[in-house]
């Protein structure tokens, strides 16, 4: 995937939500405290190394065995520091991770190795979350298989996605833009390519997107695209992938990503490829070559069939 322009270099510090900011503040404060401690210890060690080098092997240094008051001091001071940090921690936990207090706006289901995204409004997509700027979005998280982890560092904490153990996270973006995310719990062969994007848009743009996503894809009119649409069923792609079309019932909707509006997405294969015609063609020809171990088999697609499928998919906007 090509990184979007202006991508953040230090995402947990280039925050765009109140939750992420709370964590960044705690991080900064803790790093400062730790930095001071490191400086003190480094100074003391360096001082000893320089000042107390052996000068006269015959002279034995004073054999000081201890000093109880010193011991108590350097036990108590760290306890106080630690108590202070714990207080800061408690406060930040509350401000960076609010409880879920309503029905979720989005349900995200982690699969090996893609993200299923289902909106309460009925929109369904994959690997890409759109949301309106300035509004809190409650995301419910479930896993279809193994433990994954949902992490969009510029917008907040990471949260595990564990089968049988539903969790939630609040997403909120204070500025429009594309925020990078990724799976952050080792989940098997293609954990590295289980990335996701969060696209924050103006409320109007989001409403339009949401409306559009809910609509089924138009039936293809172009004859090549129509061929592609038939191939989609004949080559058994429809067994795993849903394309919502008028007059078509979905039976096995979510072994693989919903493809109803696939041409609009930024990446393919949860981030392994940029989404354009050439890459889509390569992906259809040989998904195992591009993302080995992924659950999409490489079927024997001729070049022509692949082209027809691409033509069809490009209509799925």
């Amino acid at each position: 995937m090509t990184p979007p322009r202006g991508v953040a270099v230090l995402p947990p510090f280039e925050t765009h939500s109140a939750q992420a900011r709370a964590i960044a503040d705690l991080f900064t404060q803790t790093l400062i405290v730790c930095g001071i401690i490191l400086l003190v210890v480094t100074f003391l060690v360096t001082y000893c190394v320089v000042r107390f080098r052996e000068k006269d092997p015959k002279k034995e240094p004073v054999q000081t065995a201890g000093h109880t008051r010193l011991e108590i001091t350097w036990t108590l001071i760290p306890v106080l520091i630690v108590a202070g940090l714990t207080l800061l921690t408690a406060r930040t936990m509350a401000s960076s991770d609010p409880p879920a207090d309503r029905e979720p706006d989005i349900t995200v289901i982690g699969h090996q190795w893609w993200w299923e995204v289902r909106y309460r409004s009925g929109a369904v997509t994959a690997n890409e979350i759109h949301m309106p700027v300035g509004r809190d979005v409650l995301v419910a998280l479930e896993s279809a298989d193994v433990i994954h982890d949902f992490w969009v560092p510029q917008l907040g904490r990471k949260i595990d996605v564990t089968p049988g153990y539903p969790t939630h996270v609040w997403l909120e973006a204070d500025a429009a833009g594309t925020y990078l995310g990724t799976c952050a719990e080792f989940c098997g062969a293609q954990h590295a390519w289980m990335r996701l994007l969060v696209v924050a848009q103006s409320p109007e743009e989001f409403a339009a997107w949401d409306q559009h996503e809910r609509e089924p894809a138009p039936n293809p009119t172009d004859p090549e695209a129509a061929k592609g649409a038939r191939l989609f069923v004949d080559m058994t792609c429809a067994q795993c992938h849903a394309i919502r079309r008028p007059g078509v019932t979905i039976t096995q909707p979510n072994s693989g990503p919903d493809l109803t509006h696939v041409a609009e997405r930024t990446t393919l294969g949860a981030g392994v490829l940029d989404n354009d015609e050439k890459n889509l063609w390569r992906w259809l020809k040989d998904p195992q070559g591009i993302k080995p171990g992924s659950h999409m088999p490489s079927v024997q697609l001729s070049d022509k069939k692949a082209t027809d499928l691409v033509t069809y998919f490009e209509t799925l906007r």
Partner: peptide
Amino acid sequence: AAAPIDWQ
């Protein structure tokens, strides 16, 4: 140990 930092 500061859990929210861990969360990042």
